[in-house]
Design a protein around this nucleic acid. Structure first.
Length: 377
RNA sequence: GGGAGGGUAGCGAAGAGGCUAAACGCGGCAGACUGUAAAUCUGCUACCUACUGGUUUCGGCAGUUCGAAUCUGCCCCCUCCCA
C-alpha cells in the first residue's frame, strides 16, 4: 500500500509462545504502545473523566462516535471548533466508530438498504441517512486519527444467508468508503464481519486485505455470543490479516476477552465496560469483581484494590466509595471510573511487559487465576 | 365544647364486599451490563419454607355475611376548621 507517512504499526516484539505482539502505533497525534486498551468517549467525553485524568491513567487512544456526534453537536460544529481534538481538549489520538455499531444497537429505528442505513434518530425521530460516504465525510470533519469503515454489526446469532448477504454488503460499503476517503492525516480501517462462519470471516478478511487498509478491525463480536464463539470469530479473521498492520477487536473490555485476544495477536481494543460498570457500582479488582453498593462494605475502610495505583485506590476507602454511590454523588462515579479505566490500562501495560519478556502465557494464566472468575467481567 | 376528615406492609399512597399478601412510588437488599438511546435495567422486599407451598395481616375489639382492608357498632389515636 501507499504507506501513510504519519500512521503505521511498528512491531517491536512477538511473544515466542503465543504470538502476542508488542509494538508502537504511530499516529498523527502521537505514538501509542500496543496492545492498547482504548476508553470510549462516545459524545466527545469519556464519561466523568477529564483528558488530564485520562493521560494520568496512561490512556493512549480514545474513541468518539460518528452517529452520536453527528446528531449532537453536529459534525460541522466540531469542524468549526477546529476538530474533535480541539473541541474536547484531547491532544492524543482519537479513533471514531463509523455508526456501524448503531446499525446493531439501534436496530428498531433503522432500515438497511444497499445504499446505506436510514435511521430514525433516537432523540427526536428525525430521519438520518448514513452511507459509507456520509460516515466518511463526518469522520473527516471530526478529524479523528483513525476512522472506521461503515459496516453492519451483525447480531448474534444470525443465519448463514443473512451473514453472507450482510458481509458482502459491508465489503461493498468498505470499498465505497475507501474511495470516498480523502484525508491523508487519517487512517481508515476495514472491518471484518462474517458472523460466526469461518468461510465468511475468511472471505471478508481476504477481500478487505485486497483493498489494502492501513489497519483492520474485527467486528460483530461481544454482542451476546458465548465466549468460545467469540474466540473462534477472532481466530477465523485474524489468520488472514497482514502481520504488519494493526488488528483491532471492537468492543471488548472484560479481562478474559482482552487477554485472550492479545494472545491471539490483537493489538487494540475498546470498550464501554469499565466506565459503564463503574457508573453502575461494579468494579474490576485484582481480587475479582466488587459491587461497591453491597452492604458488606459499609464499614470497610480498606482501599478498593490494594494492588492498584490509581487515585481512587490511593486515597479512598470502600466505605467512602459505597457512601458516595448510595447517595448518588457524582464524585463517586468519577472515582470508580478512574479505578476501572486505570485497572484495565494497567493490566494491558503489564501484558506489554510480559510479551517483551516472552512470558505472556504465564502472565495471562496468572491474571485469570487472580481474578478468579471463569466468566470474567 | 361544636364541626369535618383520617388511621393500609420501613415510609408515602391506591384499594370501598370475593379476581388482594394487598397497585404504584420511595427507601432497603441483590444481580446484570462488552465498537454507550445505559449515572441504566432486572429481581426480591409481612412471616416460615425443601422456592413448592404454608401461616398471620390493612388502629383495637365485637358483629353482619358463604366470604370483610372494604359494611355495622363501640373504643383508641391523628389532622384541620369554628369556639
Amino acid at each position: 500500500m501507499t504507506a501513510m507517512k504519519n500512521f503505521w504499526l511498528e512491531i517491536k516484539h512477538v511473544d515466542k509462545k503465543t504470538g502476542a505482539r508488542y509494538g508502537i502505533l504511530h499516529t498523527p497525534h502521537g505514538d501509542c504502545e500496543v496492545p492498547m486498551f482504548m476508553p470510549v468517549g462516545t459524545l466527545a467525553t469519556v464519561k466523568t473523566l477529564s483528558p488530564e485524568e485520562l493521560h494520568q491513567m496512561g490512556a493512549g487512544t480514545i474513541l468518539g462516535n460518528t452517529y452520536h456526534l453527528s446528531i449532537r453537536p453536529g459534525a460541522d460544529v466540531v469542524a468549526k471548533a477546529g476538530g474533535l481534538h480541539k473541541f474536547m481538549n484531547w491532544d492524543g489520538p482519537i479513533l471514531t466508530d463509523s455508526g456501524g455499531f448503531q446499525v446493531f444497537s439501534l436496530a428498531e429505528n433503522r432500515k438497511i438498504s444497499e445504499d446505506g442505513v436510514e435511521f430514525k434518530n433516537h432523540l427526536n425521530g428525525d430521519r438520518l441517512f448514513f452511507s459509507p460516504e456520509v460516515s466518511i465525510d463526518i469522520q473527516e470533519k471530526l478529524g479523528s486519527d483513525i476512522a472506521m469503515s461503515f459496516d453492519e454489526c451483525i447480531p448474534w446469532p444470525a443465519d448463514y444467508e443473512y451473514c453472507k448477504k450482510s458481509t458482502e454488503r459491508t465489503l461493498r460499503w468498505a470499498k465505497r468508503g475507501l474511495d470516498a476517503h480523502k484525508r491523508e492525516d487519517q487512517a481508515l480501517f476495514g472491518i471484518v464481519q462474517g458472523g460466526d462462519f469461518e468461510d465468511l470471516r475468511k472471505m471478508c478478511a481476504e477481500e478487505l486485505v485486497k483493498m489494502d487498509f492501513p489497519g483492520y478491525s474485527i467486528g460483530g463480536t461481544s454482542i451476546g455470543e458465548p465466549k468460545d464463539k467469540f474466540f473462534e470469530m477472532v481466530e477465523y479473521a485474524i489468520k488472514y490479516l497482514p502481520e504488519d498492520k494493526p488488528r483491532y477487536v471492537m468492543g471488548i473490555g472484560s479481562i478474559d476477552y482482552v487477554l485472550g485476544s492479545i494472545a491471539r495477536g490483537v493489538d487494540m481494543f475498546d470498550c464501554v465496560l469499565p466506565t459503564r460498570l463503574a457508573r453502575h457500582g461494579a468494579l474490576m479488582t485484582s481480587h475479582g469483581r466488587v459491587n461497591i453498593k453491597n452492604e458488606k462494605y459499609k464499614e470497610d475502610f480498606t482501599p478498593l484494590d490494594d494492588k492498584c495505583d490509581c487515585y481512587c485506590c490511593k486515597f479512598y476507602t470502600k466505605a467512602y466509595l459505597r457512601h458516595l454511590y448510595v447517595c448518588d454523588e457524582t464524585f463517586g462515579k468519577r472515582l470508580l471510573s478512574i479505578h476501572n479505566v486505570r485497572f484495565l490500562i494497567k493490566l494491558v501495560e503489564e501484558a506489554r511487559v510480559a510479551i517483551q519478556e516472552d512470558r505472556f502465557e504465564e502472565f495471562m494464566d496468572e491474571k485469570l487465576a487472580e481474578f478468579g472468575d471463569e466468566r470474567g467481567f
